[in-house]
Amino acid sequence: MFVINCPYCGERDQSEFSCGGEAHIVRPKQPTELSDDEWAEYLFMRKNIKGVQFERWNHAHGCRKWFNMVRDTSNDKIHAVYKMGEKPPVI
């Protein structure tokens, strides 16, 4: 059970949040021009890293805002949280 520092609300219990998977996967602007393989790459392919991972989180039972989080999956240490649209920090 992490304590997550929501960029809008501050520190809250993990039970208020839900994880939305890998971050910084941008929906293609022109999906129709992609091949099946390229579309599948966007749609299905996700990394599952042991180590530092960039993730999307949603303060579902709070401000309902989505934000990004950098977490080390091997020890659950949270390195950074930052708002959507902000540049990812260098870890």
Binding site: G20, N58, M84, G85
Partner: peptide, 13 residues
Amino acid sequence: LSKLEDYLQTEWP
């Protein structure tokens, strides 16, 4: 609602 919010906040801000 949460899916719509997701698209609004992350893909189409």
